[in-house]
């Protein structure tokens, strides 16, 4: 077998150049996605009139289509909308000012938002109703009760799901190569193609992703133990 083990290490080192882009995409999309997801979850739980069907349709559509489609739709669709608006309103810019990674941020945030909303919704619904009633009875308003009582508990419940989503978005960030953002997968392709050693480059990329995933899993397990400390039984 013509495998060059030494090159795996070379490729591995060169992949670190692209690591920041992967991390940026993952972190931005999970962070923004979490905010969108919480908003969507609250809209759906409180059945806010006009917004409720819109939110449901958003979640349904995003969860029913591949992540690649969201990226490509944003990549090709957003410039048309922006350019149309800019020329109609006479604004002094066009879509070329958006950096390529911006498309990845926007579309992956939209993707993550839909998945997160399901996670957050499950978390909020799992918090005992009595908690909300207790908060009302000591005179808190609904936003106060949500922010101080319900959401922290919901967050603890949905932590494993959040970490799963984080891993999903980390793995999903490999799609950004289709809009020519150089993240780990794209870097692996570049290294592979210039040295004509494809297998080695992808082994290196796989090891890097595997390592990051295990890291996230370990961190989640640690965080879970910490967050649930108040929740254990017993007297001491």
């Amino acid at each position: 077998m013509s495998l060059d083990p030494g090159f795996i290490w070379t490729a591995f080192l060169s992949l670190f150049k692209a690591l920041p882009n992967t991390l940026y995409i993952t972190i931005v999309s999970v962070f923004v996605g979490f905010i969108i997801g919480t908003a969507i979850a609250l809209i759906r739980i409180y059945r806010i009139p006009v917004l409720y069907p819109l939110a449901s349709a958003y979640v349904l559509f995003i969860r029913g289509t591949p992540m690649l489609m969201h990226l490509l739709l944003i990549y090709f669709g957003l410039p048309i909308i922006i350019d149309g608006l800019a020329s109609a309103l006479g604004l002094g810019f066009n879509s070329t000012v958006i950096p390529l990674i911006g498309f990845a941020y926007i579309s992956f945030s939209i993707t993550a938002g839909a998945y997160m909303s399901e996670v957050v919704r499950a978390g909020i619904l799992s918090v005992n109703r009595g908690q909300m009633e207790a908060a009302y009875s000591i005179g808190m308003t609904t936003p106060q009760a949500l922010r101080r009582i319900v959401l922290p508990q919901a967050l603890a419940v949905c932590l494993p799901n959040l970490s799963n989503n984080l891993i999903g978005m980390l793995h999903g960030s490999t799609l950004a190569f289709t809009v020519s953002v150089v993240e780990i997968n794209a870097q692996a392709q570049i290294v592979a193609a210039t040295n004509w050693k494809f297998l080695e480059a992808y082994i290196a990329a796989a090891v890097l992703f595997w390592g990051m995933t295990i890291l996230i899993e370990q961190a989640t397990a640690w965080l879970e133990r910490r967050i649930n400390k108040y929740n254990r039984g017993g007297v001491a």
Partner: peptide
């Protein structure tokens, strides 16, 4: 299980595409 859950499907596709022929060559 850890490996296939811990790496993106895209990377796995390429790994198998380039790796399997090498393995079978043996």
């Amino acid at each position: 299980v850890s490996f296939f859950r811990g790496t993106p499907i895209l990377i796995q596709l390429f790994l198998i595409y380039y790796g399997l022929p090498e393995l079978l060559k043996l």
